[in-house]
Design a protein around this nucleic acid. Structure first.
Lengths: 201, 201
DNA sequence: TTTTTTTTATTGATCAGTCAATCAGCAAAA
DNA sequence: TTTTGCTGATTGACTGATCAATAAAAAAAA
């Protein structure tokens, strides 16, 4: 049975199983044994491919973040013009892909882990910065730099907030409307910026 | 040494130690032993006053939520007029009290716990509903019911998002500006509502 | 008032269970 | 025969919870 070239297959299976199990347990409190069993192998083999449990978690987090990045890039490639592109970013962040149950749980859990594990914090910072600079890049076509940065911060915070409220089931809206909340915010803030600018002139 | 009437003192010490230890560990992964030692007693005594570890966590969460509720009520009592009162709500949510290191960590950890423990979920829902209805109550003086609800949802999401970004150190602004982000949002959304209404007339 | 009983407060020791990690060793390719 | 893939068994450390035992205060009884 032992074939060569199993490493990438096994690692992928373990990463996928990790996300799945975290989603099921809704917590990082998942044993390597559970993960390994779900991935169809022994505990020892899981440790053969990943030195430690936390290394496995980091790999899982990197995978979720990678998936997200790919979704954003795909959305951006399809959109044209700043408005459409802003919408694409928001949709990638609050789209149905990201709202899959186990992905949601993984994100929440990673948020907590980012408080302790430096590597997890680093990964999350990359996500934050990318979201911010993506938003600013488009907003710069529509307003000044200072205002673009401010609106991007507000929108990013709103995205995170809507995400968490959905994750905890504390939302009355469906996932659909979440996008509208942010796009409304962007639209209104940009219009208000115009008003301010006009008033100043 | 054993005196009567220790129960409230011991329980308060345990709750306080729990919040402190969660803040230090930045995780729910804290042993009863650690908490008990910090509270100046044995593990067995901690179990004497709280049946289980999770009962202790729930008590700690109830305490944090209670403190928050008190802060909101105090702020509301001091404010007059819907604008001031809205500001008071936001300030209570994003004020320096709530940004104390261990309180922040406790909130984040409770968010995750709310995914599994029904009682934790219930407590968090109370917080969510209270924040929402507080906001709606004031907004109703300034706009229609449907719009009030929508703006309240957006503002609440933004508050949570700003909170988490601060908790993770992913904020470039200081805690101060966080309040301004939300009040700006409220102001602009209300103004836009007026514009829409005027346009419709 | 003194004595006895009950209640409250407290702990060290320990149980029963869990878990991450290791290791020695086997099987099949290369 | 060396490398890669794989596992059962085991280790060592930890943890929540329980319990028997003890001390002091309060209440009841004498």
């Amino acid at each position: 049975m032992p074939k060569v070239g199993q490493e990438p297959i096994r690692k992928a299976a373990l990463v996928s199983a990790t996300i799945h199990e975290i989603g099921k347990a809704r917590s990082l409190d998942v044993t390597v044994g559970q993960i390994a069993r779900t991935a169809g192998m022994s505990t020892a083999l899981a440790h053969y491919y990943f030195d430690s449990k936390s290394a496995l978690f980091i790999a899982a987090m990197r995978h979720v973040l990678g998936e997200f990045g790919r979704t954003v890039r795909l959305g951006l490639r399809r959109a044209s013009g700043p408005d459409e592109r802003l919408r694409a970013i928001v949709e990638a962040s609050l789209g149905s892909d990201q709202f899959e149950e186990h992905v949601v749980a993984a994100w929440l859990v990673f948020y907590v882990e980012a408080q302790r594990a430096p590597e997890a914090a680093r990964l999350l910072r990359i996500y934050t910065h990318r979201l911010h600079s993506n938003l600013v890049h488009e907003l710069l076509q529509l307003t000044g730099r200072a205002r673009a940065r401010e609106i991007a911060q507000g929108a990013a915070a709103m995205i995170d907030g809507l995400y968490i409220r959905h994750a905890l089931g504390n939302d009355t809206w469906g996932g659909q409307n979440a996008v509208r909340f942010v796009t409304d915010y962007l639209e209104v803030m940009l219009a208000a910026g115009d008003a301010v600018r006009r008033r100043a002139e």
